[in-house]
Simulated scan of single mutants.
Amino acid sequence: MTSIERFLDRLGLRFPIIQAPMAGVSTPRMAAAVSHAGGLGSLAIGAGTVAQARQMIVDTRALTDKPFNINVFCHAPAVRDVHREAAWLAHLAPLFAELGAAVPVALDEIYPTFLGDEAAFELLLELRPAVVSFHFGLPSTEKIAALRQAGIYTLATATSVREAILIEQAGVDAIVAQGVEAGGHRGVFDPQAPDERHSTGVLLRLLAGRTALPLIAAGGIMDGQGIRAALDLGAAAAQLGTAFVLCPESAANAGYRAKLHSERAASTRLTATLSGRLARGIDNRFIEYAEAPGSPAPADYPVAYDAAKRLNALASQHGNSEFGAYWAGQGAPLARAMPAAQLISTLLGEMAA
Rank of each mutant, 00 (worst) to 15 (best):
A304W: 06
M351G: 07
A212I: 12
A145K: 06
N71H: 14
T242D: 04
G324W: 06
E109I: 01
G294K: 02
A164I: 03
S250E: 07
W327C: 00
A150T: 07
A174Y: 02
G46C: 02
Q330P: 00
V202A: 12
A304L: 00
R162G: 09
A341T: 10
G241M: 03
I344W: 11
G294F: 01
A251H: 08
R285C: 04
Q330A: 09
A315Y: 06
D108V: 05
T157Y: 02
R128A: 10
T346V: 09
Q342M: 13
R277T: 11
A62M: 12
I175C: 07
K259E: 14
P94E: 08
A337M: 05
A230Q: 10
L343V: 03
A86V: 04
I57W: 08
E168S: 14
P129H: 15
L274N: 09
A33E: 01
F136I: 05
G255N: 10
A31F: 13
L314G: 00
S133F: 04
Q317V: 14
S35N: 06
F323E: 07
G276W: 04
I144P: 09
L246S: 06
L63R: 04
A87V: 07
M1S: 15
A62I: 11
V180I: 15
S199E: 01
L343Q: 08
E181I: 11
L107Q: 01
M30A: 15
S199K: 06
H261K: 15
D108L: 02
L278Q: 00
R162I: 11
V303L: 04
L246M: 10
F286C: 03
I110Q: 01
F134P: 06
R210H: 12
A332L: 02
G319C: 07
L124Y: 06
T154Y: 10
G187P: 14
E196D: 05
K143H: 13
G116S: 08
A292I: 13
A251E: 06
K259T: 13
T49C: 10
V72W: 02
G276N: 00
V25R: 08
E322N: 14
M22E: 10
H36V: 08
